[in-house]
Simulated assay, not measured.
Amino acid sequence: MKKIFLTLGLVLGLSPLFAQDDDIDFNSDNSWLKAGITAGVPVGDAGDVSSFSLGADLRGQYLFNPNVGIGIATGYTNYFEEDENDDFGVIPLAGFIRYYFTPNGLFFGTDVGYGFLTGVDDNDGGVYVNPQIGYHNRDWNFYAYYQNTFAENDIDVQAVGLGVTYNIRFK
């Protein structure tokens, strides 16, 4: 049931991105890809079996106005083994929203979607959230995050960490 509500929420929440509106003009000032890396410390259930997380972050963003951006986020976060446990990972498929206070400076936002687990038996994944707060300029984003995948069988895969992305502008 969670998957149905999550899918419905993503479709309705991201539908403005795909609307057939002649006024939407994707250009280098309002649309770009963000590519970067994350590094974190697993906490909760993940902290019991992993000592470090390292990930890749890929996003497509559209700015509605100078302060509000929405988009789609994915990537991969690997949780490295601790005490004879195997590595495992999370592949998110999420929508995101960000609020930029000024053209350069503080932002906050969150990703909401589904996190697919890799390297974990009998568990496909679950609801994925990733709130962030950070600093941005025209080319870079530096942020702190809390990542949580509410996976099946009452397992929460959580990490806190830092990330950086570079904005790849559309021409």
Rank of each mutant, 00 (worst) to 15 (best):
V127H: 04
Q158T: 09
G75A: 01
A19H: 08
Y128T: 02
D121E: 15
V11R: 06
D45L: 13
D83Y: 01
F142V: 11
L117G: 09
G161K: 01
M1T: 00
P16A: 09
G40H: 01
V120F: 10
V127C: 05
D86E: 10
A46N: 04
A73T: 10
V129K: 07
D111E: 06
G47W: 08
Y76G: 01
V129F: 03
Y62N: 08
G40E: 01
A73H: 07
G95K: 01
L12T: 11
N65T: 05
I133N: 10
T110Q: 04
G60M: 14
T165P: 13
V112D: 02
P92M: 01
G126H: 00
D25Q: 15
N78V: 08
F26Q: 15
Q158H: 10
I4D: 12
G71V: 02
P16M: 05
E152P: 14
P131W: 08
I168T: 13
W32F: 14
D124M: 08
T74Q: 00
V112R: 04
D48L: 13
V90R: 06
G109C: 09
Y145A: 07
F52C: 02
G89W: 00
W32H: 10
Y166W: 10
D57Y: 14
P131Q: 07
N167D: 13
V11L: 07
D111F: 09
T110F: 06
G125F: 03
K171Q: 15
G36A: 12
F96S: 06
F107V: 04
L93A: 00
R98A: 11
I91E: 02
F142C: 13
N65Y: 10
A73E: 07
V41K: 12
F5A: 04
T7D: 01
D48S: 13
Y99Q: 04
D122Q: 10
N85D: 06
F170S: 13
N137Y: 05
A35M: 15
R138W: 12
P131F: 09
G36N: 14
K2I: 06
F142L: 11
D25V: 15
F108D: 11
V68H: 07
R138D: 13
F108T: 12
Q20L: 15
G95T: 06
S15F: 08
L58D: 02
P103K: 05
G60Q: 14
I24A: 15
